Simulated assay, not measured.
Amino acid sequence: MKIDLTGKTAIVTGSTEGIGKAIAKGLAECGARVVINGRKPDKVEATVQELAKEIDGGEFTGVAADLGTAAGCEELVRAVPEADIVVNNVGIFGPQDFFEVEDEVWQQFFDVNVMSGVRVSRAYLPGMKKRGWGRVIFISSESGLNIPKEMIHYGMTKTANISIARGLAKQMAGTGVTVNSVLPGPTLSDGLVEMIEDDAKKAGKSVDDYARDFVMEARPGSLIQRPATVEEVASMVVYVASPLASATTGAALRVDGGVVDTIA
């Protein structure tokens, strides 16, 4: 089985680090022209240069735009009018007690985690439909099913991602365009490393060991009993973005290490 994305243009939102960066790299390794996105121009450019050096023949362009705003989404579409693959990855997270989360925080999480994907999908799906081929993938989370009590505001947005992807899949029925959501579980991304790095040092443990213990404490139902790597999540996304996944649409595909305790 070989995944060939030669000639396809892929946009990965929020792709200057973590899962998004790994997805961008994976798509490029399969031949796609990849658009790197982030809020900071210098970080976008640095990521473009880094990945271009790592992947022989890789084609990357960068668009610095804050997709948590309507204006930022419009800026992305102006820079890249058409795309074959869109990965709605950009997102924010952070634990906070429900009773301490102000309205502004709820709105910020909704704007970044939900409305970015709504606006970007609304812009690119009509072109995909017209051409008879396309892939839209929402990066949700197992937290969209297993709502964490310490991040209810985050879990809500990830449930919304799953709902939107399912509805859009129905909207694109019979067109050759698929829409899916991918649900990572605890993943050793830059964000998780940043969150636990200080605690790991205080505990006298490596980040990897502390992360493993963290997963077993916070998600004791994990069947792999460790965090996933960003590459493991990216592998699922690259497959779903490929022609090989043409019969997979409207699905919520888990890369959660077995955290969600259901067979469906």
Rank of each mutant, 00 (worst) to 15 (best):
G26S: 04
D42Y: 05
I139N: 01
V240C: 02
V136S: 02
L125N: 08
V44T: 07
T178H: 11
V118Q: 09
M156P: 04
G20F: 05
V260Y: 00
N37R: 06
S206K: 02
S235A: 13
K2V: 09
G20R: 01
V63Q: 00
S235Q: 13
K158L: 03
Q108N: 06
M115H: 13
A264S: 13
Y124P: 11
T175Q: 10
G18F: 04
D84E: 05
I36F: 00
V63R: 00
D208I: 07
T187K: 15
R135K: 13
S141P: 07
G62C: 01
A83R: 08
K202R: 08
E217S: 03
K129Q: 14
F214L: 04
A251F: 15
A160V: 01
E142C: 08
A203T: 08
Y239L: 12
D209R: 02
G176T: 07
V63C: 01
T13C: 11
E217P: 06
G174A: 13
V44Y: 04
G258D: 09
P81T: 03
V233G: 11
D190H: 09
L192W: 13
L5W: 10
V255Q: 09
R131N: 11
E74S: 08
V240R: 00
K21R: 12
E194W: 07
R166M: 14
T229Q: 05
E232H: 09
R131Q: 10
G58S: 01
L244F: 14
A32F: 13
A46K: 09
R135T: 10
D111I: 05
A218F: 10
M195V: 14
V86A: 01
E17Y: 11
V179T: 05
